[in-house]
Design a protein around this nucleic acid. Sequence first.
DNA 1: GCGATATAACGGAAAAATTCCCCTTTATGA
DNA 2: TCATAAAGGGGAATTTTTCCGTTATATCGC
Lengths: 153, 153
Amino acid sequence: MKLDDTDKKLLAILQEDSKTPIKDIASHLNLTKTPIYERIKRYEQKGIISKYVGVLDPSKLDTVMVVFCSVSLESQKLDALESFDKAVADIPEVVECYLMGGANDFLLKVVVKDLQAYHTFSSGKLAALPNVSQIKSTFVLNEVKRATVIPLF
Amino acid sequence: MKLDDTDKKLLAILQEDSKTPIKDIASHLNLTKTPIYERIKRYEQKGIISKYVGVLDPSKLDTVMVVFCSVSLESQKLDALESFDKAVADIPEVVECYLMGGANDFLLKVVVKDLQAYHTFSSGKLAALPNVSQIKSTFVLNEVKRATVIPLF
DNA sequence: GCGATATAACGGAAAAATTCCCCTTTATGA
DNA sequence: TCATAAAGGGGAATTTTTCCGTTATATCGC
């Protein structure tokens, strides 16, 4: 689906604050509620907007620790990659997971309670996954920026 | 703020789908709308929930490319780190930014249109920031998982 | 244990937002 | 130019949120 200028502005607003009333968006974009409403329904129906979520501030939660770890597999065969994908999807501590170019490693963003919980996670759950050969962990000292926004060009 | 069991369940629901009607949440948690409503307002007021956003599916958008890059600075002094923080906040392509332990590098998640746009961004905007000494880029081949959920323990 | 006080839950009514309807306007193309 | 499709508009019905006053439950000092 190709996005016109109104789509881009509208999606930018919804990515910043999905609770903005439709009538406010409408007056801001010099339209009425109906066209805005129908565009939004279209995004939802086409899956462009996949969901609406509340975003928590980890610094306001007592004990939250963020770790990035790169995981290498013993095999780079497709079925090895895919079985890793599936296994990772069910681990709640793994908040994000990407297959990376270059070394064909996975990059994981992991959220745990504290260092001890990370050790349990890493040596227990993560190392136990099939084909895992190496885990390198780097700890987040400070979350400088975390936008949920995908910039539209 | 310490979270009781209801808080954790409620926050889990709001992190999954912030559009769930309060009355549905209420009946699911065996309560009425008022206590649910008041808990939610408390989270918002205390900043535990920082915002509500629509999440876009990048695969449904024509041309979106994700890159992780680690940026080293020439100086690790506090003011150098902070001026980098501030500069990064205004660059829309930088979707996330973390100060990492170990080498004291920054890890950036960058979203651009294509490889050419990344080159422009990296050599233009990013390298131009003060004190930047080294940029190492790794490209995302596949987004295996991207949850917005912070698991609560 | 008892009463006082604070915290949480309840139910209904008012306000606001969403949703749905039908109508009008503006493009598009044969 | 007329027919047709796509986009925008306005108002009413529905749903959801918000805001009361009230009741229940828990906590703490005595």
